[in-house]
Design a protein around this nucleic acid. Structure first.
Length: 901
DNA sequence: TGCCGTACGTA
DNA sequence: CGTACGTACGGCAT
């Protein structure tokens, strides 16, 4: 059966409805309605106007369900109005810079939503709206005009309603003819007459002094319109009459200027404005970039029946009769088939209940795993475990964990569409199969029968042919995506990276996750009590100092205490006031010596540690081991990340923090934990990539890197470099790999910007290759659009050519860092594959447990200590041929703490 | 309940 | 105004 889109539903409307929006005016309203501090991207791009406008648009689409939509913008500075009356809109403040930049973003969004935007040199948006509105009425349509410009009220009629923002952009007043009459006392057609008399300060059109809407309406009604009023001016008595006579010319000008032009020549007809299906892929990209997560969800959730173009999958789904699976698979022997598993994938605790196999040629089988006959189960297990039978999977690691719950293997994954998408677009936040399907296949994964939420509920498709139809659909999508993405991978030079690095790594990571690391629960319980006591002590002392109890974990309450009650000097400004972060509190303590600060800091430390310990205790599985999940598609640089729990951020810097590492211990049946880490891998990669002779020499000499560099920068002998000098150099060296500015360096080192700049200058004098390299990286990335690591892993940085300085400079820093951080990630991944392979090849029981970016943790079986140390050193050291040695330091011990060095 | 902002742990 | 992450909490909107 085919999965079909639901038809576009129309809310029983008899006449088409045209929605016309004044883009500029509504965006401007949004800009002032939403605090810009709360709406900007990570890169500093302000987005309040974009957000407000889009949210408003979403509401209108939902509530009004227009059949036709257009957004009109003002074009250029000058219009026929400014030509006739130079002072027109003359009092308007220059639009803020932060607003200007947002209009193109709004246009981008509209484009992805396939909404027509219109502008015409010399005219205002209102004129375009008046023109279209007039045409639409003639075509028998209803019209909704959404604008913050009151002049549009003249358009209101039986078929035309104006939505005018009362407050913000979400609260819109509906102006029907009755509403206009009610509010202004004149019919819509007379509104411009009234406005001419009253004036419009936002347009810099003065009105008749002393004449407000009430008087104006009275006159207009009495004399049948503005012409009548002006004709009768000599007879109007009183102060107001006098003013009117004095201002008659201005009033005539006002009336001429506020008349909407209804016959602007436009490149489109009303019929062309029919709502079109969204370009969902492009929308995802724009919304990703703008970091509008919820708004995007709202939009997509709101109009699920949108997207007319995408077709469903034509899929013949069978649930083979008992014993028939083998022949189904045999008929497709050697062909690449897609596997999709319905189940849960917690490492070591996974389970699978259904599995679909699709052949990419409209055929799929769906298997209810609990109901498989022994024959079928055997056939399935053989095929799944046969590495010679190529498969495509979306997220092979999760599938492996789920299948493991049924004792089923998964081998021979030739394409993982999740990894492939990640390699092609590493900056994306999610690689949801449904989105990829739309994006690459132009097919909607959703079917009437889907909604398989993995909770085991049987999901009967409409024609009743197969349960878990959604799983089959997903398998079909994976089959096709596999082919499409292979080509995209090739285009992006990432074929090898997938085949030889990321895919083989899946098995290694799955193994590490399944194994987990043993934890000493009793020890952790003890730590928790210690830290909890420290928290309580610190809190009590803090309360005693200020004479009341506050929530020390609340930055807001802390601000009140520090800056209101204790009147301390203000720290750095943040969105919600002034920062209370540790660095600022420490700084305040230096200056004020106020004991409250010390207690707060102690409280923070202790509660953080307690919280970490509590999280770990919660994560201990029944067998006493903690299992993390390594995310392979999150970090845009190519690093892994670790979640649930994150074992890549276990404290190490402070003594109290290090105690936590004592809780990670060697498991039963094993001898010791072994840690192996690369020393200064990022600096070594910088040396290699830059080819700087001085830096390469530093590493080859075997001397302490920072002392060596310090000696050259300060012009002294290596052993004369002071500790202070060394730490400055260290900060700068690492900073360079992050795109550090002299300003940033000065702040970090507490020195003047001039000093910092001089320090950097001295550094670059001695290590000129570094400067050349760093400049070259950004240049090349700007040219090609991406950076590349040693293994060719790309990161695309379109913002390198942005007009927005903040965004551009952010992208530049990313470009500086991505090749370095990413190459380090490449190397340790290569090393992991090597270590894993050697352990297996040499028949060792020892195993990899953790990776922490530049460190591997292994569990060593009795008698294997020397062999493992040797092979780990070899594999890590030989991960790639660099022009500098890759030093590896190794430690062993009964716990992670003892094995550390 | 869910989201945002702040704070802070790691490399 | 230094990159890359994940987690917990408070506070607020819903």
């Amino acid at each position: 059966m085919a999965a079909r889109l639901a038809p576009v539903t129309d809310q029983a409307r008899t006449r088409p409805l045209l929605l016309l929006i004044d883009g500029h005016s509504m965006a401007y309203r949004a800009f002032f309605a939403l605090p810009v501090e709360n709406f900007s991207t990570r890169t500093g791009q302000p987005t309040n106007a974009v957000y407000g406008f889009t949210a408003m648009l979403a509401n209108l689409l939902r509530d009004e369900a227009p059949t036709h939509v257009a957004v009109a913008f003002d074009a250029g500075r000058t219009t026929f109005r400014t030509e006739q009356y130079p002072a027109y809109k003359g009092t308007r403040d220059a639009t803020p810079q932060e607003f200007q930049g947002q209009v193109p973003l709004i246009r981008e969004i509209l484009e992805t939503m396939r909404i027509t935007t219109l502008q015409r040199e010399g005219f205002e948006a209102d004129d375009i709206i008046a023109t279209l509105s007039t045409q639409a009425q003639a075509d028998g349509m209803d019209v909704l005009v959404c604008t913050g410009d009151r002049d549009a009220l003249q358009l209101v009629g039986d078929d035309v309603t104006v939505l005018y923002p009362r407050k913000g952009v979400s609260d819109l007043v509906r102006f029907t003819p009755e509403a206009v009459q009610e509010k202004y006392g004149v019919p819509p057609a007379s509104y411009p007459d009234l406005a001419a008399l009253v004036g419009e300060s936002s347009d810099n059109l003065p009105g008749v002094p002393g004449v407000g809407p009430k008087t104006a309406a009275k006159w207009i009604l009495a004399h049948g319109g503005l012409d009548g009023v002006l004709a009768a001016a000599p007879t109007i008595t009183g102060k107001a009459g006098e003013s009117l006579r004095a201002c008659a010319d201005q009033v005539r000008v006002n009336r001429m200027l506020n008349a909407a032009v209804r016959d602007v020549e436009l490149p489109v007809a009303v019929g062309d404005l029919a709502a079109r299906p969204w370009d969902r892929e492009a929308m995802h990209q724009v919304f990703d970039a703008l970091e509008f997560r919820t708004l995007r969800e709202r939009l997509f959730a709101m109009v699920p029946e949108e997207v007319g173009e995408a077709e469903g999958f034509q899929l013949d789904v069978v649930s083979p009769a008992a014993g028939a699976l083998a022949s189904w698979l045999e008929a497709r022997h050697g062909r690449r088939l897609a596997v999709e598993v319905a189940g849960t994938s917690a490492p070591g605790r996974g389970d699978a209940w259904a599995l679909a196999v699709a052949d990419g040629a409209d055929h799929a089988v769906v298997l209810e795993l609990a109901e498989l006959s022994p024959d079928d189960e055997g056939a399935l297990a053989r095929w799944l475990g046969d590495s010679a039978q190529p498969k495509s999977v979306h997220g092979a690691k999760d599938a492996m964990h789920a299948l493991a719950g049924r004792g089923l293997p998964l081998a021979g994954v030739a394409v993982d569409t999740l990894l492939a998408s990640y390699l092609c677009h590493p900056d994306q936040r999610s690689y949801d199969l449904a989105d990829l399907s739309i994006r690459h296949l132009r097919r909607e994964l959703r079917s009437e029968a889907t909604a398989d939420d993995g909770q085991g509920a049987l999901d009967l498709s409409l024609d009743g042919t197969s349960p878990h139809h959604g799983t089959a659909l997903r398998a079909a999508a994976v089959a096709e995506l596999g082919d499409v993405l292979e080509e995209e991978l090739a285009d992006r030079g990432a074929t090898q990276l997938l085949r030889d690095l990321e895919l083989p790594l899946v098995d290694v990571l799955a193994g590490m996750e399944r194994t987990g690391i043993a934890a000493d629960r009793d020890y952790l319980d003890g730590l928790e009590r210690e830290f909890a006591a420290a928290v309580a002590d610190a809190a009590a002392e803090a309360y005693a100092v200020i004479g009341r109890e506050v929530n020390l974990g609340s930055p807001k309450q802390l601000q009140e205490v520090l800056f209101d009650q204790l009147q301390m000097p203000k720290t750095k400004k943040i969105k919600t006031g002034w920062t209370t972060d540790a660095a600022s509190l420490a700084d305040l303590f230096e200056r004020t010596q106020h004991p409250f600060l010390a207690h707060v800091l102690a409280h923070r430390d202790a509660s953080r540690l307690r919280q970490t310990v509590e999280g770990l205790i919660r994560s201990i599985d029944d067998d006493g081991r903690i299992r993390t999940t390594f995310q392979q598609t999150i970090a845009a640089t190519g690093r892994l990340s670790s979640t649930d729990p994150n074992l890549q951020n276990i404290p190490i810097r402070t003594e109290a923090g290090r105690q936590i590492r004592r809780a990670f211990v060697v498991g039963e049946g094993y001898d010791v934990l072994l840690t192996a880490d690369y020393s200064q891998i990022e600096m070594r990669i910088m040396a290699h990539l830059s080819g700087d002779p001085g830096l390469i020499d530093a590493f080859r000499s075997g001397e302490d890197l920072h002392s060596y560099v310090g000696a050259r920068v300060f012009g002294v002998a290596t052993d004369e470099v002071t500790a202070a000098q060394r730490s400055k150099i260290k900060a700068m060296s690492y900073g360079l790999a992050y795109g550090l500015s002299s300003f940033g360096l000065s702040k970090q080192l507490n020195i003047s910007v001039g000093e910092a700049a001089a320090l950097m200058e001295d550094y670059f004098d001695r290590f000129g290759g570094v400067r050349t390299y760093l400049a070259g990286v950004v240049d090349e990335a700007r040219r090609t659009g991406y950076t590349a690591t040693i293994l060719g892993r790309r990161r695309y940085l379109p913002d390198l050519t942005s007009d927005n300085r903040q965004r551009r400079e952010m992208a530049e820093r990313m470009a500086l860092n991505a090749p370095i951080q990413g190459s380090a990630a490449d190397l340790i991944k290569v090393a992991m594959l090597g270590v894993d392979r050697r352990l297996r090849d040499e028949g060792l029981r020892s195993r990899l447990l953790l990776q922490v970016h530049d460190e591997l943790v292994l569990e060593v079986a009795p008698g294997e200590r020397d062999a493992v140390e040797q092979l780990v050193r070899q594999e890590m050291g030989a991960a790639a041929p660099l022009s500098v040695p890759l030093d590896v330091s190794v430690g062993v011990g009964g716990s992670w703490h003892e094995a550390g060095h």
